[in-house]
Amino acid sequence: MNLTLKIWRQAGPDEKGKFVNYPISDISPDCSFLEMMDILNEQLIAKGEEPVAFDHDCREGICGMCSMYINGRPHGPDSAITTCQLHMRKFKDRDTITIEPWRAKPFPVIKDLIVDRSSFDEIIQAGGFISVNTLGTLPDANAIPIPKQNADLAMDAASCIGCGACVAACKNASAMLFVSAKISQLALLPQGKAEAKKRVQKMVAKMDELGFGNCTNTYACEAECPKEIKVTNIARMNREFFVAKVCVPKME
């Protein structure tokens, strides 16, 4: 395949960025998108130009590191996958492919296609955990049976990889799918109940503080989520939040 890549280049967080076109030829349709980017970078280095910086690691769709906005969609044209799982067979010969970083205020660009997503870690640190002593003696794992349905729903929510595609897809740069996935997972399990009310308030407050927008029900996040996390998690979070506000008017 012969293609034109229109790639966002930005030298640093405070530098002005711009699109640069790169022609690339003889790409196999079985090549993955990131392998195509590797080939481009090898060619750029050979020519003495600076390679395109992008985040990636596991290359099997689970670490959540890769984050490219391809032809106007987070993780590109295929559904339910990350950028690293995208293959060139999803494009046509002589296509022009536009590649941008995630664009959201709480995800500032570090360089080229790399953004800073530490705001997601901050939200988890605000309360996305169950406070157990990691060295303590705990009840037997089977002491509390959990209905399979709840365990399955918790697992659906827990499969979030924290890539940020939901934020990139949302016109409001809302992180509510990400935040609600963690809140749902822990609210659905008996172990997470004790802290549920505090958790939802703290995480939502942190999310607002970091500059993520609100949800206006466009469902773009669900459509683009590589792990197909459902917006029903947002509904569950809203309910948890409401209940917490009513029952615990003042946060400790």
Partner: peptide, 22 residues
Amino acid sequence: NNIIDQCVAQGVPFAREYGGLL
């Protein structure tokens, strides 16, 4: 065995049977 107890306490959603056990 401690690992499994602890992970369950942390909210790790292991696969379960219909009876609710692991």
